[in-house]
Design a protein around this nucleic acid. Structure first.
Length: 264
DNA sequence: GCAAAATGTCAAG
DNA sequence: TTGACCTTTTGCA
């Protein structure tokens, strides 16, 4: 399930597998029939990702996909199986296929429509053209908690619930600290760290925010339980100080934090 | 067999 | 702030 790293990883994969090729499209479920027909057989000219939004360009039209909480792409080689269940979109070339299920958005956009969408997104730490200062300025003038701002896609694009809790822990910041009270130097360090963490997420396909010395098995495959400092660890001891990790709703999602390490 | 939860977003009130 | 929506997986009877 997806935060920004998942989308950038998908973009890379789709570029490799489908870029420059004629791509057939269908919507076995029927909910994207018109869009699929519109793009069917066209050549994939360009793949792009911004925050949690994925784009394919086919000539002058864009396929826009947002996975939301439940959406998922699966892909493979050769002939795909008979479509089963709620399959929103299937794309195929002569030797590859990819299936999309459960997205929040799967639609065809014109370039101007895509522009409108991008205009409401903040800088994405995974994009080389990201404007770190724009995010800093937005945070510096906001009374909203930093834990809310990190989830606000118009402030920073691509951060989700896991990276939110983890980046706050790594920089010892109270999730409820108003943005305007966050030391700008701390924000710069958090941003740079987001770039590192999320880039690693693109490479590995999973979110790992713990330093090697805080993972149970530094050598072998990192077990899921060791991948985070606080996310999903409510009531269990903080890896740094042993205090039970707290959890509470913040911006309609569950935030996790250590009340001692992240005290104001 | 079914409820609940899950890395998200938007519109209505 | 709340509820609705998209789907799969897990855990409990």
């Amino acid at each position: 399930m997806p935060e920004g790293h998942t989308i950038h990883r998908l973009a890379r994969r789709h570029r490799q597998h489908f870029g420059g090729l004629q791509v057939a499209k269908s919507s076995p479920q029927g909910r994207f029939e018109e869009g699929a027909a519109l793009l069917d057989g066209q050549v994939l000219d360009e793949v792009d990702a911004w925050g949690k939004h994925l784009f394919h360009r086919y000539d002058d039209l864009w396929l826009h996909v947002h996975l939301g909480l439940f959406g998922r792409f699966r892909d493979g080689r050769g002939e795909p199986d008979e479509p089963r269940g709620a399959l929103r979109l299937r794309i195929t070339t002569t030797d590859r296929w990819a299936d999309l299920r459960g997205p929040t958005a799967c639609e065809v956009l014109t370039a101007p429509e895509r522009g409108v969408l991008l205009a409401r997104l903040g800088p994405d730490p995974l994009r080389p053209d990201a404007d770190r200062d724009a995010a800093a300025a937005r945070i510096a003038r906001s009374r909203a908690p930093i834990g809310t701002l990190l989830m606000d896609q118009s402030a920073v694009a691509g951060v989700g619930n896991v990276y939110r809790s983890e980046i706050l822990f790594r920089h010892e910041v109270d999730p409820w600290l108003p943005g305007r009270e966050l030391d700008p130097t701390t924000w710069e360090a958090m941003w740079d760290d987001l770039v590192v963490m999320m880039t690693a997420g693109v490479q590995s396909g999973r979110i790992v925010t713990t330093e090697p010395e805080h993972r149970e098995r530094p050598e072998g495959r990192v077990r899921r339980v060791d991948a985070s400092y606080v996310y999903g660890r409510a009531g269990r001891p903080c890896r740094m100080c042993g205090t039970p990790v707290e959890r509470a709703e913040l911006a309609a999602r569950t935030a996790f934090w250590c009340p001692i390490c992240q005290a104001r």
